[in-house]
Design a protein around this nucleic acid. Sequence first.
DNA 1: CTGCAAAACTGGTATGTACCAAGAACCGGG
DNA 2: CCCGGTTCTTGGTACATACCAGTTTTGCAG
Lengths: 245, 245
Amino acid sequence: MVNTASALKSEGLHYLGMRDDIAARIAAGDLKPGDKLPSERRLQDEVGVARGTIRAGLFQLEAEGVIYRRDRSGWYVSPPPVVYDPTRWEGFMSYVEAQGRNPTTETISAELVVADPLLAEVFSRPAGSPLYMIRRRRYVDSRAVLVERIVVDAALAPDLLRFSFDESLTSILKSEYGLSVARNQVSMQPCALTGYEAEALRLKPGLPGLAVQRISYDAQGRVVEYDHEHWRHDAVRISVDIRVR
Amino acid sequence: MVNTASALKSEGLHYLGMRDDIAARIAAGDLKPGDKLPSERRLQDEVGVARGTIRAGLFQLEAEGVIYRRDRSGWYVSPPPVVYDPTRWEGFMSYVEAQGRNPTTETISAELVVADPLLAEVFSRPAGSPLYMIRRRRYVDSRAVLVERIVVDAALAPDLLRFSFDESLTSILKSEYGLSVARNQVSMQPCALTGYEAEALRLKPGLPGLAVQRISYDAQGRVVEYDHEHWRHDAVRISVDIRVR
DNA sequence: CTGCAAAACTGGTATGTACCAAGAACCGGG
DNA sequence: CCCGGTTCTTGGTACATACCAGTTTTGCAG
């Protein structure tokens, strides 16, 4: 490495120096995923720089996904991310479990809505068509990692609301309605989590995240699911393995 | 919207209020991509809050990819991101051009190396096998958006270094060596750009980015390219359209 | 031992100040 | 007109301080 913590300090980049200190302690296993860091004021005394400088270093590590914060509780070491493969239609529950983690889901709302012009276009239905809209929050090992809004065509899945969505929607659509996905159109973009998403994840508005939009089609080309997910950026890694066109 | 700028201000979240002010001016087209924002000290006077608060709001917008900074020059409105489809093997030059933007490439280095254990495993060659390693910096509309390190098997592309890599490596491999890609294995993760990457992109170390790793195979399953890319996070959007397994 | 209120602690926001280093603009000499 | 140095501007870093609002702990009353 070119820059050691001490080199950075002597260059006058104290916040990067302290960043490296903490990062090194994590890399060395001195601090493990889930562990709590010393408080900002304690670090201030230990390291001997102002609290603002300490916070700059912590923000750095947060942006890198190395640590995260719980409001007014403290800073914690981030657990490793889950791997997400958009080319598979396994649901969240199964691929998180397959990675040895503990997924849970909480339904925020589920309602019947009518298609606005945008939704109508996505589903190739007239505006005003009935659709189900489901909002959920999903956890990995008790940490909220994403909120999503799923829209399903009511014509394909009549009376969908009688089910609970705290488990896998994937399995409901398949076993109850015989709907399975043949094609996914996925778009992803780094974003900032603000407003509703930040609140739902109990995050400070503006923290970085990953916005995922997915349209799932069945073999007949009908839209089975129209999904928007907002992930905390440190909770996910994308992996794709595909034949090239 | 639930939170207007003025509402946030009265709540005591001045930095979010000013964030919304700027975001609104950009959304309204008052400030266009590439435009320069007023200086921090000017904003300080205009908005009437301390410079630290102004900077907090600017960092916010930066994390969202709405604005970016040129060191000691100023803050600028981000141009729209380019769309990147890992399922295609069109090179950077062609897909950026197809989106009406102007791509350029700069070769940083190109050399013959020998396979270390990790590279040997990727290429299924004995350690010590000859490989070409190419580092490049790529631009969209004169803004550096990514740095990459490509490794190519010297056995598949002998004497590769006689070519210039300031254009498309894709076309060289295809036209000169008959190598075309049948399968891509792509992994992506939000990251922080530090050290070499930050320097090469002339970015402050620690800014958010997207790390992309790609292994490209030909129809015989041979590794054609082993590629690591580091993108600035506001410059790219990922889009995938695939049949589900 | 339990339940609950008070106290201590923690991060969140904001202000003001100071100085540095790199970029941009200016201006004069050739 | 161009070149090159000076000056101004700009963001970058750092400090000290103050107060707020949730979280966590403490400790007392029942």
